[in-house]
């Protein structure tokens, strides 16, 4: 039983009513992880790793997280140093404040703001499609993935952390923006690994390995 647990860590994909989580779960499974989609706080508390996905508007995501009583379990998991992966809105929610449709508070795990792409730069917004992620240094999340690989993005806002040391990847779209975060056991990507073909699946596999390593360590 221990062997099975080691081989397939239990990852909970947090379900708070924001978008389709099936592909995130499928991607984790394809990468060899045991993944459950759940909105049950006790499942989150007992998980070895947490994935927080999210699509739509920041305000709605945060409101749903609050209404589902999932803020404390998610923050608790992060405080316990459990591996955490935020995807798209799930990354933006880590920040302190968002400027989407007024000013809204996020989880505040990462100091900084969530800001909009500047339409005046003749940019199509949302930033939709495949763009390169330039790694700012080695990260266990990017193990085995060539620098400047393409990942699938769809978003109109991006995270702007106060401390650029937490930025693990940059992407160019009008400006250079933070497309991934890595600090301690907190990982996040603005792009969708579950929609980014083989390199995306590799990220989910890497996250699974981080969770296994953590459990064994």
């Amino acid at each position: 039983m221990n062997i099975e647990n080691r081989a397939s860590p239990s990852i909970v994909v947090v379900d708070y009513g924001m978008g389709n989580l099936r592909s995130v779960q499928k991607g984790l499974e394809k990468a060899g992880c045991r993944a459950t989609v759940s909105s049950d706080p006790s499942r989150i508390e007992s998980a070895s790793g947490i994935v927080l996905p999210g699509v739509g508007a920041f305000r709605d995501c945060m409101a749903n997280l609050v209404n589902s009583r999932l803020v404390d379990p998610v923050l608790g998991a992060i405080e316990e140093n459990k591996p955490f992966l935020g995807i798209c809105l799930g990354m933006q929610l880590l920040l302190a404040v968002s400027e989407e449709f007024g000013t809204h508070e996020g989880l505040g795990v990462v100091p900084g703001r969530v800001v909009r792409f500047d339409r005046n730069k003749n940019l199509k917004v949302p930033h939709m499609g495949w763009n390169r992620v330039h790694f700012s240094g080695p990260s266990p999340l990017f193990k085995g993935i060539p620098d400047a690989s393409y990942f699938y993005f769809v978003h109109s806002y991006y995270a702007d952390p106060d401390n650029s040391d937490v930025v693990s990847g940059w992407t160019n779209y009008g400006i250079r923006f933070c497309s991934s975060i890595s600090t301690g056991n907190i990982f996040a990507c603005q792009f969708h690994p579950e929609k980014s073909q083989h390199w995306g699946l590799k990220i989910l596999e890497n996250f699974g390995n981080i969770v296994v390593g953590q459990k064994e360590g």
């Binding site: 499609g129 992407t171 009008g174």
Partner: peptide, 12 residues
């Protein structure tokens, strides 16, 4: 080409 779109790939 769309100005300022950096390295965003055109999609097929």
């Amino acid at each position: 080409m769309t100005g300022g779109s950096g390295e965003l790939a055109r999609r097929i």
